[in-house]
Design a protein around this nucleic acid. Structure first.
Length: 212
DNA sequence: GACCAGGCACATC
DNA sequence: GATGTGCATGGT
């Protein structure tokens, strides 16, 4: 079994299924992916609740609401001025190129779709891949700060490894299945939140002392 | 009060 | 291509 598959087994045995992504619709998932950039999920939830309460959680309503009003609604998620611009760019993209519906993306080739998402201001690799995996069910592995930290601490990647390099490892070592990629990334976040912080709390960590 | 959180774009070298 | 900086709220 590949090292990354071994790690997956250990994490799944320790934590069980994570039930990601929290969200009622693919569009909500995509909005959450932008709002959660460098931000605690709890704060994102508050912002999403504000959008729901204001009946603004659709491409069309987000497209039409003034940027300043949008910024106020998403304030709890932090970086609210920047994220308002980013959400605006994203819904303009959906409306102009996909007739206002995220689901019109699913038929498209994953690689070209990823490149188009990356061309939207405010959507980088992690956000694009989160949208592809969690909103559109494409088998793309999501790399984040936790993933890199955990892998480098266990000697699997170097500390300065890049996103693509890291992602390639997962794509090489795992079968490309959406449920596996979905659960695995969520398990890394779980592990990172509880144990593999900037100050490691290795006591009780299911990967404690493991080399791969 | 410091530090951190499910990044990204942009400037500068 | 690598490095540094601004963006901002809420929890620990």
């Amino acid at each position: 079994m590949s090292p990354l598959m071994s790690i997956y087994r250990m994490l799944f045995d320790a934590f069980g299924p994570q039930g990601w992504w929290p969200g009622d619709s693919p569009f909500e998932v995509a909005v959450g992916a932008i709002l959660t950039q460098n931000t605690n999920w709890q704060n994102v939830n508050r912002a999403i609740k504000n959008l729901k309460d204001a009946h603004c959680l659709s491409p069309r309503t987000l497209y039409e609401i003034p940027e300043g009003e949008l910024a106020i609604l998403i304030k709890p998620s932090g970086y609210f001025n920047i994220k308002a611009v980013r959400l605006k760019a994203f819904v303009a993209f959906i409306i102009n190129q996909y007739d206002g519906s995220l689901m019109n993306m699913v038929a498209e080739d994953t690689e070209s779709l990823r490149n188009k998402l990356l061309s939207v201001r405010g959507i980088g690799m992690e956000t694009a891949d989160s949208i592809l995996l969690y909103a559109l069910n494409k088998p793309v592995f999501v790399i984040d700060a936790y993933t890199k930290r955990i892998l480098s601490r266990h000697g699997i990647i170097s500390e300065g490894a890049g996103y693509q390099e890291c992602q390639a490892l997962f794509h090489q070592q795992l079968v490309h299945e959406v449920p596996l990629f979905n659960e695995y990334h969520a398990l890394f976040v779980k592990l990172g939140k509880h144990y593999c912080k900037s100050k490691p709390q290795c006591n009780g960590c299911p990967l404690q002392g493991q080399r791969f």
